[in-house]
């Protein structure tokens, strides 16, 4: 651990937590443009958060302590996940805390808490949402793990910073196996963040929802924390994608001068990824719930195939 890089770590932490709703706003804006609407503007998520934080929360009589703690745990877990993914610098003193496998573990941890909290109040929708969330999770989690294994095998390490460093070490190396991993990762990203075609983030019909059913009973500041946490999760996922598949331009550990440039490059990449995501969501239609296992099963198989191609081609 390099003590001099702790400010860097803190910068990333603050930026991720602070700017995550901006990304959500950007995606919403892009979707509005693609649908030929004018959109609510980039700052809309912040307005929503402010409104929610100022409201007095309503809670069911049956809610236990678990229900009240869960939003904080969700937020804390996602913030930690955002802190350990190398975004614009590989000099993250916090990175040894959790490698790629532990990162998947954090997502599992927050997912379990979200599902348990949804079951806590005892509504039919809450448990339905929990069941669907776990269904998505148990298929997406192994797929994500295998996606991460391909670069881990390439760079002989499961540490994300080491992976990024080894992927950017050579000038330009094409890894065919990463093509498979990228497709699988995109599918997992869509599923894990509740995007179309797996879930519709804007839906208002309880029967078709996954995430919406999970936090149906939440309101006020608790809901604000959950929404914020899912914005951080989306940014973290996009950052993982960038780190694995287009890592070029990241500042190496100790190169302070590269830092502003790397940050700018990262922001451009995120903007592009957000627009791409919005385009994808506009083009696709939401599928039936029982197509989801097939969708994620395909993602899983593609990830495994990527692993296999790595052995076939030795790269």
């Amino acid at each position: 651990m390099n003590a001099r890089e702790i400010p860097l770590q803190l910068t990333q932490f603050v930026l991720v937590v602070g700017a995550a709703p901006l990304l959500a706003g950007w995606i919403g804006q892009c979707r509005a443009w693609f649908a030929n609407r004018s959109g609510a503007g980039l700052l809309q998520p912040y307005r929503v958060l402010r409104k929610l934080f100022h409201k007095s929360p309503v809670m069911a009589h049956e809610a236990s302590l678990l229900f009240r703690i869960a939003p904080y745990i969700l937020f804390g877990g996602m913030a930690l996940a955002g802190a350990i993914v190398p975004m614009f610098s590989t000099g993250l003193p916090f990175a040894p805390v959790a490698d790629a496998i532990a990162l998947v573990g954090i997502f599992a941890f927050t997912r379990i808490f979200a599902a348990l909290a949804a079951m806590d109040v005892g509504t039919a929708f809450g448990s339905m949402g929990a069941r669907r969330e776990m269904l998505v999770g148990f298929l997406a989690e192994p797929a994500l793990l295998i996606v991460l294994f391909t670069p881990a095998l390439i760079s002989h390490s499961t540490s994300l910073t080491v992976i990024v460093m080894s992927l950017t070490a050579a000038r330009l190396v094409l890894y065919p196996s990463m093509a498979f991993a990228a497709v699988a990762f995109t599918m997992v990203l869509l599923a894990e963040n509740g995007r179309i075609p797996v879930d519709n983030p804007d839906t208002h019909l309880e029967l078709t929802m996954i995430h919406g059913a999970l936090d149906l009973e939440y309101s006020g500041r608790y809901l604000a924390l959950i929404e914020w946490a899912s914005a951080i999760k989306l940014l973290t996922y996009i950052a993982i994608g960038i780190a694995l598949f287009v890592p070029w331009g990241i500042a190496r550990s100790g190169h302070w001068a590269h830092f502003p440039l790397a940050l700018a490059i990262f922001v451009v990449k995120v903007i592009a990824a957000g627009a791409g995501l919005a385009l994808l969501e506009t083009l696709l239609a939401k599928m039936r719930l029982f197509r989801i296992p097939e969708f994620l099963g395909t993602a899983f198989m593609l990830a495994v195939l990527g692993l296999l191609v790595h052995f076939l081609l030795g790269a």
Binding site: L172, S177, F180, L305, L313
Partner: peptide, 15 residues
């Protein structure tokens, strides 16, 4: 690089 490109295309072909 050209051999890499062929490998890449091969993987895409399989995909």
């Amino acid at each position: 690089l050209f051999a890499q490109a062929i490998n890449m295309l091969a993987a895409l072909f399989l995909l």
